[in-house]
């Protein structure tokens, strides 16, 4: 389609006309993904494991765990290398 203002205007007019009715089918065609967002993050309890390691550093220590070890192994291709490290 050209960017001719008249053609754009008529396309817009057609779109607004369409949007009043036929769009349900259009919308259904588009592949939607539902995100599972968990709510309710604020609580007034104490984490059960808060007591663990009261006399020592926590198991993991203060050091960074430097190497990701999750499903990122499944993401392949040329540009998986970190930008910086």
């Amino acid at each position: 389609m050209s960017t001719n203002p008249l053609k754009i205007a008529s396309a817009v007019a057609v779109a607004l006309g369409l949007s009043a009715g036929v769009v349900a089918a259009q919308d259904a065609k588009q592949e939607k993904c539902y995100g599972i967002v968990k709510a309710g993050k604020n609580d007034c309890q104490t984490a059960s494991s808060s007591c663990a390691g009261t006399s020592k550093k926590d198991a993991q220590g203060d050091a960074w765990i430097y190497v990701p070890a999750g499903t990122c192994a499944k993401i392949v291709g040329a540009s998986t290398a970190p930008k910086k490290g």
């Binding site: 007034c44 309890q45 104490t46 984490a47 059960s48």
Partner: peptide
Amino acid sequence: TILIDDHG
């Protein structure tokens, strides 16, 4: 003994 208020 330390009681942890975990509501669990």
